[in-house]
Write a protein that binds this DNA or RNA. Structure first.
Lengths: 206, 206
DNA sequence: CCGAACGTGGATTGATCAGTCCACATTGTG
DNA sequence: CACAATGTGGACTGATCAATCCACGTTCGG
């Protein structure tokens, strides 16, 4: 499971850790996100996390486990925002566009990192079946949520009912990934944002 | 330059190479394409190419140069087909859909490899400025060609003239990359093909 | 106040990698 | 036939990597 293990509640003897676990994990996430798994070395991670070697191994296990935790926190955080927005009351198509807004915000703040989900699919998918399966699951969850919201949009008369909600969900997932890739390719958010706005227009039927 | 250096025309003494350079390059391309640059080792390359270590270094220089040649041949081959189709006489929008057909064909034949252009952007873009620039150039050339064809489509009345051809070109480039990514994520061509067909429908105005 | 348990950091290890060295085989030339 | 030039393959090298070992400092329980 990629789900983060809940922090141990039992009090135990000995000194507490001298660093903030979540902050260290966030620093590791930033590096993995921008550089990828293999291109990020342990020493580099330790510098960014501000902790020593043994502390990292004691706390997270090994490099792969650290990466899995960082990936899980990324998916939880981003997925949480996106899913909440898609399920929010109000116009379904407006909610889709608000999700595009979240993605544009990400492009602004992380224009040279892309999307960790897509990055991981390409780098680790071919040689790590467990990660590949987890990524399929994450994409599938996103697609299902979009399919639902497109279904509601059709029922509300906001969307051409000849289109298949499942296919549109695939299209949105693919275009979102492509926008993240172009954003990283150019190191600037403008192209990716233009992509999302064009897709909005097409979905609106113009 | 990524352009392949023309084979030397001058005859020279000594024995000829005992292998087919293009075939060896193709084998290397297949591995880099599927696995990425770092995940592909020299020994693995040599096995697939069917040649010895020293032959590879004599012929291609080093791993990076071998990769650049493989990448160049990929871009030349695929770009050649796509550009020719976009410039072909006839309906501009039909030509766009025929390019989608080329991409679907690629998804069928290489469903677990994705697109080497996108793969390279994500893996090597952040730490190899020369490659990053080359990838920007390749994407830019593709985008320009699509923008031209969308312009012609609008002049022919095939496409809503309120849309910006440049933005649409970005959208198509992004969605194509996203479709390749989803194809690799699932290891099957169906999702990617559905994405391209949905995009076709939307471009046709439903 | 002492001792056990834990966190920490520097030194070390074993594996793996790209790249090189060198001896040998093969071919064309004088 | 012999020499020179080139292609080839196995052994080797130096660097880098993740991961471990071990000695030290700190904190809490009895």
């Amino acid at each position: 499971m990629l789900a983060t293990v809940a922090a141990m509640a039992i009090t135990r003897p000995g000194p507490d850790k001298q660093f903030d676990r979540d902050q260290a994990l966030g620093a590791a996430l930033g590096l993995f996100w921008k550089q990828g798994y293999e291109a990020t070395g342990i020493s580099e991670l330790l510098d960014a996390m501000g902790i020593g070697r043994q502390s990292m191994y004691n706390t997270f296990g090994n490099k792969r486990a650290l990466f899995l935790e960082a990936l899980g926190s990324y998916l939880d955080r981003l997925g949480g925002r996106v899913f909440a927005q898609l399920r929010a009351p109000g116009s379904p198509l407006d909610n889709v566009e608000k999700v595009f807004g979240i993605w544009e915000e990400m492009a602004d703040e992380h224009c040279d990192s892309g999307c960790l989900l897509g990055n991981t699919v390409l780098e680790l998918g071919p040689r790590d079946p467990e990660i590949a399966t987890a990524m399929q699951t994450a994409i599938g969850a996103l697609r299902r949520e979009f399919a639902n919201v497109f279904q509601r949009a059709q029922e509300a008369g906001e969307l051409n009912s000849e289109l298949d909600p499942e296919d549109l969900a695939h299209l949105v997932a693919a275009t979102g990934q492509g926008a993240a890739l172009l954003t990283k390719a150019y190191g600037s958010p403008e192209v990716g944002k233009s992509v999302l706005r064009s897709l909005s227009k097409l979905l609106r039927g113009t």
